[in-house]
Nucleic acid binder design. Structure first.
Lengths: 208, 208
DNA sequence: GCTTTATCGGACTATTTAGTCCACTTTATC
DNA sequence: GATAAAGTGGACTAAATAGTCCGATAAAGC
């Protein structure tokens, strides 16, 4: 993703790369807990212990930094989900995936929501490039879910006439909507209930 | 809801009430399309044609104004949903409700999301009072959905052992998650798919 | 009418925040 | 080691923005 760095063709020394990473890491954390707009560049500077000129040396401005954060969060989420879903081929495996997400969100009482989803709702109506990047990430994530569903079909645990893509969309919506309700209620229960309903539906398709 | 007005015990003349309404209406519109944080008080002033002293005369500050906007949006959404859901007692009625929401959102290519959901994700990590107000509104909205489901149970269209409350939570999550995915993709399809899956699940419970 | 209170306009202040600039240091390359 | 480019610190600027204040008008209550 080249949009995030303001100096594409430039040499980047190990020292520079390290600073850039520090900036993005600090911005990622801050924007997750405080929100994008509430996180000021000075906040990022203070948290990363970097000077202002460095930030503008590595990024064209706040929007570019936000896009770098999106890339960073996206990479981490996709990697996490690839590990969690890449080889799942049973309903039970899908339930274990659910348990992991719910328990991890329960630790914070659902307070911060989904790392990607929070970014999406905050950034969508401000920066079209960022919105598109997030859209691609959601698509990729959904693709991982669709892969699981197709493996279920291969093993006969899900009828072949079911649309894996549509079910994946529904499952992702349940997950994201659940995150949002949990965040608003400061209670993880609605998230768990929502995913459970989606999984129950998928499971029920093979029992008819 | 008394938290929104800074002068609770005070007299409020018809003129004053009108001004207050104008302010809230303008703020509601702006915050829906621009987002809460991106909407400045000067924006609200310009859009409502009101002076700054008036805004501070009626509200303690921006947070109080946001809470008034939440009350306003909440009232309108709940009233709309009460009209749309209050007497629904069939699956077909539920599908008509779905069609209305999807079509209305399709007009804007899903660009702005759910009026309540957008507020929720933006405000939750900043103002606890606002978050709680939104949480109550979601609960009330879900209650309307649960009412429909209970009427389905009364008429035998849904088995009595199903939990109307949990299904309502799942349906609301599908709706909100769908709104969010549609907003990110600028395409209403994922929202339609997500609600359809939730409705298919509800429908399937009576066919087993 | 008279008094009080609500309503109003808009200039003003203080602060925050994104973004600029320049002198200086480190690192890579030949 | 000389030179150029990357990296760095931090003061500075310009603009945006929340919030204050005061003088004035309109409305209400007696």
């Amino acid at each position: 993703m080249t949009t995030a760095d303001s100096h594409n063709g430039r040499r980047l020394t190990a020292r520079g790369a390290k600073t850039r990473t520090r900036i993005v890491a600090a911005a990622t954390d801050l924007m997750y807990v405080k929100g994008v707009r509430a996180t000021t560049l000075d906040d990022v500077l203070a948290a990363s212990g970097v000077s202002k000129s460095q930030l503008y040396h590595h990024f064209d401005g706040k929007d570019a930094l936000v896009r770098a954060v999106i890339d960073n969060v996206g990479e981490r989420v996709i990697e996490r989900e690839r590990d969690a879903l890449g080889h799942v081929s049973t309903i039970r495996g899908l339930r274990r995936w659910r348990d992991t997400l719910v328990q991890s969100n329960a630790l914070r009482h659902g307070a911060y929501g989904c790392a990607l989803g929070s970014l999406a709702s905050e950034v969508s109506d401000h920066d079209a490039l960022a919105r598109q990047a997030l859209s691609r990430l959601f698509t990729e994530w959904q693709g991982l879910l669709a892969g699981v569903l197709r493996r279920l079909q291969d093993s006969g645990a899900l009828p072949p006439e079911a649309s894996a893509d549509q079910l994946a969309t529904g499952l992702m919506a349940a997950l994201q909507g659940g995150y949002m309700l949990a965040q608003t209620a400061h209670d993880v229960t609605p998230m768990a209930t929502a995913i459970d309903m989606a999984l129950a539906h998928i499971e029920s398709l093979s029992e008819r």
